[in-house]
Design a binder for these strands. Sequence first.
RNA 1: GAUUGCGUAGCUCAGCUGGUAGAGCAAGUGGCUUUUAACCUCUAGGUCCUGGGUUCGAUCCCCAGCGCAAUCACCA
Length: 529
Amino acid sequence: MMQEPDALSPSELIAARRAKLSHLRTELGVDPYGQRVDGRATLAVARGQFDEGAHVAHAAAVAAAKVDPAAPIVDTRAKTRVAGRVVQHRDMGKIVFVGLRDASGDLQISMSKSEMSPTAFAVAKGLDYGDIVAVDGRIGRTQKGEVCVWATDLSMQSKNLEPPPSKWHGLEDAELRYRRRYVDMFANPQTVRTFEARSHIVSTIRRFMEARGYLEVETPMMHPVAGGAAARPFTTMHNALGMPLFLRVAPELYLKKLLVGGLSKVFEINRNFRNEGIDRSHNPEFTAMEAYEAFGDYGTMLELVESLVHHCACAALSHQWNARAEDGPILAFGEMRIDYRRPFEQVQFATLFERGVGCSMHDQEKVRAAATANHIAHAATSDHWLLVNELFERCAEALIDPLRPTFVLDYPSATSPLTRPSRANPDLAERWDLFIGGMEIGPAYTELNDPDVQLAKFTDQLRGADEEMSTFRTLDEDFIAALRTGMPPAGGMGIGIDRIVMLLTDSPSIRDVILFPLMRPEGTSDVPA
RNA sequence: GAUUGCGUAGCUCAGCUGGUAGAGCAAGUGGCUUUUAACCUCUAGGUCCUGGGUUCGAUCCCCAGCGCAAUCACCA
C-alpha cells in the first residue's frame, strides 16, 4: 500500500481506492471527478443502436485488411457516447470488459489496448466496481454475441471510495438497503424499477383525477390544531411566533374549507405524519390522496375509487410494473393473485359483523357477551359501539377475501365523528372502507355539513379522550366556523398511495416503496469516550 | 410500547459441548486481445454489534444495552 489509510475509515479496501485516486491524479494526470458530458445516450438507447449488418461488414473489413493491409476499413457501426456506473470489471490483459449500469439498464463496454490512448486504457484497467465513467465508441458485439460499446475513449467521472456490496448477491441486508438507498439502487436494479413505477402510478392517479375535473391543491402541513383523523400527531414549534404546531395527520379539514369557498372537486396528494408504530404497512410519514366532491356522497366516491384503482391496475399491467402480471387485471402480491376486475366486492359492515361474530351488532347483550368471550378490555363497561368496532376488527375483517378488492359499507356512526349518519338508519354512518390484499387502502364518507351536529360530535369525542389524547386534541373552532358559513353536502375519500404502490409493484413492505424510510440512527450508542 | 428471532471480513454466508475463526465474491500482486458470477498464481483482510458477568479461558453460556426483522398493540 503506497498511501496511508483513510483516517476516518481504516479499512484497507478504502485505502486501496484512495491510492488509485491519487494515482489517477499524479501518474495519469486525470481528474477523477470529471466534467460535463454532452451528447450522452442512455445505455438502453445505445443498445438499441446496434446493427448486425454494420457489425458483420466491419468484421469482414477488418479480416480483409489483415490479408491486404491496403484494403480500406469502412466502419458503419453507430457512434455513441454513454456514461454509467461500473458493475463488472474483467481485465483480460490487452482487452478489458466493463459492465456499465444506468437507470435504463446495463451495457458492456469492450476496450482493446490497440484502439485507445495509453492513458485511457490505463484508466480502464484500474477501474473499480462502483466507479462512474463516460465512454466514446461504436456499438458492436463480441464474438460471444454480447452487444457492447467498442470504446475509443474512456474518461473517469467519479471515483467510488466506499467498498460496494457483492456484485452477484447485490445488497440483501434490508437495513442497509434502506439506510443506504443509493447503494441499493445500483446494486439491485429492481429497486430503481419499483420507484420508477411509483412515480408512474402517482402520475397516473393525478391524470385520472384531473381528467375527471378535480383540481389539485396543496394545503398546510403544519397545523395549529391537529384534526381530520384519530391519530397522534408530531409536535413542533414556530420560534418567531412562539407557536406550537402539529404536523398534519390529515388534510381533511382544510380541503373541506375549500368546498365552503366554492371549489367543487378538489384533491391533494401529499404527506401525512402520524406518531404511531412502524410495521410492514406503516411509516411515520406516508403519502395519501384525499379527494372531495361537492354535492356528492360516499356512493360517488365508491365509483371514483373503484374506477381509479381498476385504472391503475390496468396501467400496471400494460407498463409491466409487476413482472408476474397475468392476463386481465390480475396482479401478483406475494403469494396472492389479486383480481382487480370490476365490479369490486361490496359487503355491509353489519353483514360481515354477523358472519364473523355470530350475532347482530345491534344486540347489545350478545355483543357484550361476545366481547367478554374474546377478552376485549373493559368488555363489561365499554360503550356498545366501541365493542362492536373492536369485535369487527378482531373477528370480521379477516373474512374479507384478500384476492378481491372489497368495499365494506355503512360503519357504526358512533366511531365516525366526521361522517353524516345514514338517512335510513342513524346508528350507521355513510362510510365505506376499501380492503385489498388484506390491507386497508382507505375510507370514504358522506361528509357531515351541519355545524351544530359536528360541534356536538367533536365535543363528545373530546369528553371521551384520555389525558394524553386531550393534550393535542382540541376543538377546531376555525373548522366549525367554516361549516357555519355553509358547506355543500359532499363525498370525501382518502387512500394510501404507498399501499397502492405496494400492491401494484408486488412489494411486501411499505419500506420498499418509500425511498428513504424512517430509521433509528445507528452507531450513536452511549459508548463512553 | 410488548413478545420472539437475528447481528461473524466490504458483500453473501459457514463455524465453534466454551480453547480468540473459514469459504465464495470484492481487494492487492503477477499472467492473459473476445470475457459473461471470466480464469489461473500468490497475498492481505476480523473489537465474531456494544458493555458487564460466569469461567483458567467467551464469538459461543447469563444479564443489560443498541440496531434490524417478524408478530401484536396504536393506526391508515
